[in-house]
Structure formats: C-alpha cells, structure tokens
Amino acid sequence: MRVYVDIDSCEGCGMCVSLCEEVFCLAPDGRAGSKMFNVPQDSEGDCFLAVQFCPRHCIRIRDIRKSKGNGIQNFEL
C-alpha cells in the first residue's frame, strides 16, 4: 500500500504523526509528510487510522495489491 499527503491542504496538527509515527512526520514548515512511499504491512492499520482522523482529509492511500481489474484501489475515508 502507498500513502500520499497533500501538503497544500495540511494544517500541521500532527494527528497523523501521533497515530502512525512509523510512516508520517512533520516537516520544518509544520506540515505533515510521509517518511516512506510504501507503507510496511505492520503499519497499515495505524495508517488507515491516520487517514480516518485527519481533520483536513489530506491523506490518500493506494492499495497496490492484486485484485480483479487493474489491481489498484484508492481509499479515501
């Protein structure tokens, strides 16, 4: 699974970092970013929580696991 942060929408509250510090960090300008492009499988649950509780809804997840069709599913909670 891959994670993307829309830094233009981020308000820098740090919710994602507090829920999933393995994947997210705050940049010097105060906005969130991801430490990695591909999320480790053991961090996926916490990453989903970060998506769910982001007040600005600026985190997107793409599931790249194989499925019917093109194998890509986008999640926006």
Rank of each mutant, 00 (worst) to 15 (best):
H57W: 14
I7T: 12
D42A: 12
R31H: 12
D29T: 10
V3W: 03
R2D: 13
L19S: 02
R60F: 01
I72M: 04
G30Q: 06
R60T: 06
D63A: 03
K35W: 00
I72T: 06
F48V: 04
S34E: 11
S67E: 10
E76D: 08
A50H: 10
E11Q: 10
L77E: 10
K35S: 03
Y4A: 05
D6V: 05
L26M: 10
C25K: 12
I72Q: 06
A32G: 12
Q41M: 08
G30L: 07
C58H: 00
S34W: 00
G33S: 06
Q52K: 14
F48T: 07
R56W: 03
V23Y: 00
A27T: 15
F37Y: 05
R56C: 07
I59L: 14
G69M: 05
P28R: 09
S18G: 01
G14R: 00
V39T: 02
F37A: 08
G45L: 15
C10T: 15
R2I: 13
C13N: 04
G30A: 09
F48W: 12
D29S: 12
G30C: 09
A27K: 15
E76C: 03
M15N: 03
E21H: 14
V23C: 01
N38S: 05
E44L: 15
E21M: 08
F24Q: 08
P55V: 08
L26A: 06
S9G: 02
I59C: 07
P28G: 04
R60C: 01
P28S: 11
G33C: 02
E21Q: 12
F24K: 10
R31T: 14
I61F: 03
G33M: 07
I61G: 00
I72G: 01
I72Y: 09
L49K: 06
I7R: 14
G69F: 08
N70A: 04
C20Y: 01
F24L: 07
G69A: 09
V39C: 05
D63M: 02
G45S: 15
C10D: 11
E22W: 02
L26E: 03
F37T: 12
